[in-house]
Amino acid sequence: MQQIFNFIIRNSNRLLFLLLLGISLALTIQSHSYHRSKVISSANFLSGGVYERINHVNEYLNLRTENDELVLENARLKSLLFNKEDTTKLPLPDSVKGVKPADIIVSKVIHNSYNRHENYITLNSGANEGIKPDMGVINSLGIIGVVDNTSPRYSTVVSILNMKSQINAKIKKSNHFGSLTWDGKSTGFVQLEDVPRLASIKKGDTIVTGGQSVIFPEGINIGTVDKIYIKNKTSYYVINVKLFNDMTNLGHVYIIKSKDRDELINLEKKEKDE
């Protein structure tokens, strides 16, 4: 017994080091291997509050670009209003087209990272405003990411510039589906993988979200085709997609709150159980 105590006292620094190293390595590995359940995230009272303060200052510096974007969006909405489609057409039942009635929550980016392989965005609204994990985040130009963690007042978003992110997407004119990933290289480009080689694609085609997931409604802009190549030994295309969004400069964003989401998730869960 005496010897054990002596050993502990003699090696207290080393034991302390090993203990703390173990904790921090466990946190690291945990954050790399699971899609969710981050123990330490910036969606908490302290860091959320600090980032909000910093953002108040930065906002003044970006007022001009933010205004430009709003003007552009206003113009687009006005044009939609004036060139409204014929209302005498019979409305299609929405389950056929895959369009789900969706609510929109407006929020603001208070912290944005884009220089690592796994990037996250922090927003200044959280569970109090009705944000839940797995909701889609977009802005006027295109998609941004998927909500990861929420606290009462803040939430973190897995950016599309995150190697763990996988989003269902399709080619606008031909309806061929693929999954959108990022190779960790450039902030302006993401990759659309697993597109069958039957699909006819050419440079400049638009990529939009597919309607196969409950996260995003169908048809939200992502980007344009920049380069097409074939992954070796498979019969699938990999497409380099040039994003509409400048992911390094984000202001206000919209969070899509699909009304049918809970119902769909429950249904899918039930099917899986049976």
Partner: peptide
């Protein structure tokens, strides 16, 4: 790590 969302 908390501020960078980077695990540990």
């Amino acid at each position: 790590d908390m501020f960078c969302n980077s695990g540990g």
